[in-house]
Every structure is written in C-alpha cells, then in structure tokens.
Nucleic acid binder design. Sequence first.
DNA 1: CATGAATGAGTGTTCATTCAT
DNA 2: GATGAATGAACACTCATTCAT
Lengths: 195, 195, 195, 195
Amino acid sequence: MLTKQKKRNTIIQSALKLFSTKGFYNTTISEISEKMGVSVGNIYNYFPSKKSLAQASIRYVTNKLATELRYINSLEISQKEKIRHFVTVYLQFVHRNPEIIEYFFKVYLSNRELFCDKDDCGFALAKEFIDEVEFLVEKGVSEGEFEKIDFYMAFSLVTGILGSITFLNSENAFMKDLDTYIDDVSTLICKGLSR
Amino acid sequence: MLTKQKKRNTIIQSALKLFSTKGFYNTTISEISEKMGVSVGNIYNYFPSKKSLAQASIRYVTNKLATELRYINSLEISQKEKIRHFVTVYLQFVHRNPEIIEYFFKVYLSNRELFCDKDDCGFALAKEFIDEVEFLVEKGVSEGEFEKIDFYMAFSLVTGILGSITFLNSENAFMKDLDTYIDDVSTLICKGLSR
Amino acid sequence: MLTKQKKRNTIIQSALKLFSTKGFYNTTISEISEKMGVSVGNIYNYFPSKKSLAQASIRYVTNKLATELRYINSLEISQKEKIRHFVTVYLQFVHRNPEIIEYFFKVYLSNRELFCDKDDCGFALAKEFIDEVEFLVEKGVSEGEFEKIDFYMAFSLVTGILGSITFLNSENAFMKDLDTYIDDVSTLICKGLSR
Amino acid sequence: MLTKQKKRNTIIQSALKLFSTKGFYNTTISEISEKMGVSVGNIYNYFPSKKSLAQASIRYVTNKLATELRYINSLEISQKEKIRHFVTVYLQFVHRNPEIIEYFFKVYLSNRELFCDKDDCGFALAKEFIDEVEFLVEKGVSEGEFEKIDFYMAFSLVTGILGSITFLNSENAFMKDLDTYIDDVSTLICKGLSR
DNA sequence: CATGAATGAGTGTTCATTCAT
DNA sequence: GATGAATGAACACTCATTCAT
C-alpha cells in the first residue's frame, strides 16, 4: 500500500500528463481516474477539487525545476556554466518529461484563474523557482559576469527563450534533436545577460 | 447598419477581450453576446461555432501585429532601430490593447486544439506575423548587423522575451510604466541577435 | 407575378419535398426558403406558421389523391377495374411524385400533433380521400362485387398495403420497377375485398 | 439496486411511452428523466445519446414482437391458425402495450434518419421480426395453404393491415373493443395469402 | 410584398462533485 | 479507503418567428 503522500503524487503525475497535453478544461476527472486505474471518487479522497489538483500539480512541477536549479546553484562553477547546466537539464526535461515543462507553460501561465485565490495571485506557487533564477543572476552580477539589469528583464530573457523553445518543440518545429541546441540556447541567454 | 464584415469585427473584438482575460473555455457565447448587447443566436449568424470565432480572432490579431511589423519593415532604417520601433509598438499594444497580445499568448499558444484542423496544425494562422519577424532578422544578418543564427533561436528570443513581459505585466509585476522598459527590452533583444 | 394562391402552392410543393424526405422536425423554414429562392420572412406572408404550412400541405396532398380517385370513381367500369386503375395511378405517384405519397405516410400519419387542433383531431384533413375510398367500396358491395365488411377493415386493407409498399420502396427494397407490381397489388386488394 | 441491464430496460420503457405518444423530436431527455424520476445525466450513463436510446428501443420492441411470433411459429398448428394467434397477440399488444406497437409505426418507420448508420440503413434492426413473418409465410406456401407470391407483397399485406389498424385505433376510430376484430383481421390476411 | 438580421427560448450533452454501499 | 452510479447546473448551438428597412 502506498502512503497517502505517494498516492497523491501518483495522481499528480497522471493529472500532469493529461493536463499538459489536453489542457485543464479538456481533461476530465474521469479520464485521470481511468488512466490511473482508480475510481473517480477515490481521487476526491486525496484532493478536494479539480482546481486543488491543478494547484498541487504546479507545486510539484515547480519543486522539480527548483530542485534542479538549486543543485546547480550549489556548484562551484561560473554562472555561465550554471546556465549551460540548467539549459541542458531543462532540455532533457522537455524531452523526457514534457509534462513537467508543458504544464508550466500550457496550464500555469495560461489559466491564471486556477491559481489565484482571493488576494494571492498564485505567483507564490512558482516562487521557489523564481528565487533560484534570481539567485543565479544576482550572483553573476556580483561576480562581474553579468551586467546589472532589471531582474524582470533577466527573468524574461531566461524563461522567455526556454518557453518559446518548449512551444516550438511541442509543435514539432525542430528538425534536429533538442540537445543540439544546448549551445545555441545557453549562448543566447548568456549574451543577453553579459556586459 | 454595420456591414457584415464590420459586425464580424465587432464580435471578434468583444470575444477577444473575454477570451484573453478569462480564457476560451471560461468564456461563454452568452457572455460575449451580453457584452455586445446582441442575442446569442445572432452571433451564430456570423460565426458557425465558438471555435471558428476563436480562429477568426487569431487571424485578426495576427494581422494587426503583422501589419505594424510590415510597416516598420518597410522603413529605411537600421534593423536595430526597427526592433526598437517594434518593441515600442508592441508595448503600446500591451498597454492599450492588451487583449490583442494576451489572446496570442493565453489562447493561441495554450489551446492548440482549437486551431488544428486535420493535417494543418494551425501554425499557418500566425504565419503572416512569423514571416515579418523572419524578414527583419534575415535582413539584419545580410546587412551585417546581426549574427547568423538558427531562425528558431532568433524567433524564440524575440517572442520569448516579449511574451514573458506580457505575462509579467498581466500579473501586475511591473511597478513602473511599461514604456520605461522600451530601451531595456530592445537592447536585450539586440544583444542576443548581434555578433 | 404569381397570384397569391399560385405562390402558396409553390411554397407547399417545396415544403412537401423537404418534409417528406427529412421529416417535419428536421426541415427548417430556412431550408424551404432557400430551396424556393425566396426569403424566410416571405414565407410568413403566406403561412402564419410552420405548422399551418404542414396542414396546408396535407390538404394539398389529400386533394391530389382524392381528385384522382374521384375521377376513377366516375368511370363506368367495375369496382375491381377501378381498384386496378387506382393502384396504377398510386404507384405512378410513388414513382413520379414520391413527396405526395410519402408526406402522407411520413408526416401526416406519424406527426398527429401537427394536425390536431383543439377538439378536431385532424382527421378531417384526409376526409376527402377517405370518402372516395368509402364510395368505391360501398359501390362494390352494393353491386355484389365485394363482400360487406366493416369499412375500417376495407380501409385498412387498401391503405395498409399501399402504405407498406410505399415504405418498402423508399427503403429501396424492390429490385424491379414498381409498375411490375400493379397486378400483384391490385389482386391482393381485390382478394381481400371479394366474397 | 437494479442491474445495469435492468435499468437500461427501465429507461427504454419510459422512453418508448414518450417517443410513441409524442414522437422522437417532441420528447426531451429531460421529460424521460422526469418520468423515470432520475436525473438527466444519469440517462447518459446508460445511453450515449438520444439517438442510441431510440435504436436500443427499436431493438427492444422488435425483440418483443419477434419473440411472440417465434413462439407461435413453433406451435404444431396450421399457418392460418398461426396467423389468427398472431393477430390476437398483436391486438392485445395494441391494447395493453400500445407503446410497443406505436413506436414501431410512429418512430421507426417515420424517422429513418435515426436508424441509418453509414451504409446500413437500419433495416437490420427489424430483421428478427421480418424473418419470422417470412418463415410463417414460406411454411404456408410449402404446405399448400398459401399461394406463392412475392414476399414483399405478403409482408405488405400483413404489416400494412396491422399498421393501419394500429393507426385507426390510436385515433380512436373504433367504436368497439379491438378484440372484436380478431376474426375480421385474420380472415382478411388469410384471404390475401390463400390460393 | 420582399428581405434577412435579430431574437431568445429550448434542447442535447457534459462533467465536477457527492454519497450510499 | 474505494467504488461508480447519481446529480443537476451549465453550455454550445438551433430555429421558428418577428420586424425594420
């Protein structure tokens, strides 16, 4: 028997796959339960609503990405190398766990209504990840590798490029393997951040 | 009395506002008709389905952006200046007609199922715009202003950054007026494209 | 310019074709108007409602059939010969003006709600035809050609067989030309009516 | 708790009553569910669409009739006696379960579009019944009781007369109890089939 | 008379959520 | 906990009818 938390994660993983491919509103609880082989009602023993499942999913996804980036940030290498590492890891995710990345772009960024409760606008759910990006950039600035620019600009550069590539990839725009672009992408980001 | 085409556009504009703020699936035809002050049925005299309204909307939006960019491309100025012009126009759109831009990012990019018919995956709907970006970049390369890089990289840079900023803005992340960022954004893009 | 009555008939004829093939509820006023090349609104200048158009149609159809039968009844021939004549005419109708016959069986007999107003149950609409059948049968009885049976039995025999054949024909059940069956059908009816 | 199949039948029975009295297009799923005392949605747990409910209903009806006729066909009596038996049973149905019979004539025969899928024109749904009629007639011919005539003629005779009587009865045309006509009707049919 | 855009009540169908077992 | 039948509000879409032009 799985622990309660383990089962929650199993549900999240099934949900992620469906949410990321078909979108939140085109995925039914029924489909998720079928995919998992459990009953509809049972899912409600773990999540009080479809919306809360979407929120738990973004926490799960953010944590995966933040964990990777946190680890990279802990390494004793230059910030540019960190960026290259992160791009590498990111593109691997896109390839091997597209649901992780696509959930971020297809559900989280596009269905804000799902993540905003009352005053909090669901930004906090991604904070863990944003903080690591901020850490990386700031360190680069303080160490003289990067130019000091508005953080939102830096953030837009990093996530914008990665997001675009994710989208193009999901549309099968790329002929070659995504790995091929590791250099291109990290260079592009570094050029933007550098002095 | 409005001409048929004019009325179609009025409907599209109402739809755009709602689709872009609430998303396609959270917007009902009933809401669109109420907002317009016409009956539900009347909308169906102009568009055979909600989906087709979404498609007409993306054509409308793409055309607006492409028209601006086409005009800029026709000017006798450097490519970097063109980029600055476009960023300016773009940020003005974000400010004055957010529905145009947000529709692109919140509906078109995230609800691909709405735009894919049979074999064609709805990419064509944005071609008009993509072509102008390509033209601008290629010209920059041939005139020695930009480095020759994979077009998808260049495209990711341009739309990724603009998309990110749009998203951050819609989340009210920016303290200052968007215009303030014209320089930052165009510099960022140009740095990425330059040699 | 057509007279008012002529135009009414033109509308009825278009309606008949559609009603008889697609059924009353699957035919829209819009389709009828398109088929005729007039506007929707114009139809309402001739008939106050779709239902009233259906009623006028049955009157038209009944009259066509009754007229034929009345003519046959006026001939100085045996009743059996009359039946043969009528079967011949009927099968020709089925072949050349299927809408006439099929309207009778597909709309009139199956959508009674359309023809019943208040106390009158729409039976009167077909009376003209029923009366001629009754006349033919009674004459046959009084002249000793037919056995005296309950009129409803005789009526069921005549219209039942013809109705069945109409249905089978509309399902393309018959391999051979309908004319081929003139003898079979009239013999069948006569056998039932005879002593 | 009813078994799934039992519940399907309960739904079919409710649907039959409404379809047969009001017609397919005048009956709403909502009415059926109300009549049953269940929710609208629940009906969709048993039938994927209103159309499929109509198809299941004709299967149900055909089977009821075919079962009776099959039993009669199994008896060791003359074919004429079989016909009398069947007429008896049929008229009892008309009296006690009019929805069974009227569904056949008011919905199945008049709304062909509901029963035709792709190439198959829904004729198969009634095959079970048609086959038994054919068996009865053929046996009568081979045993010398009936004349050898085109099967469609024989079929038209049998179902035509019964159909007509059903219709007249539903219009309250008959003064006397339907049972009174058992002899008349079976005699009429036998006269037509005999040598 | 003729037009056809506009109306809006009505229908089939979906699906998140509940709850008796 | 686990099940899945039951619920019912909600929504896309239709179409008879009206009426300003």
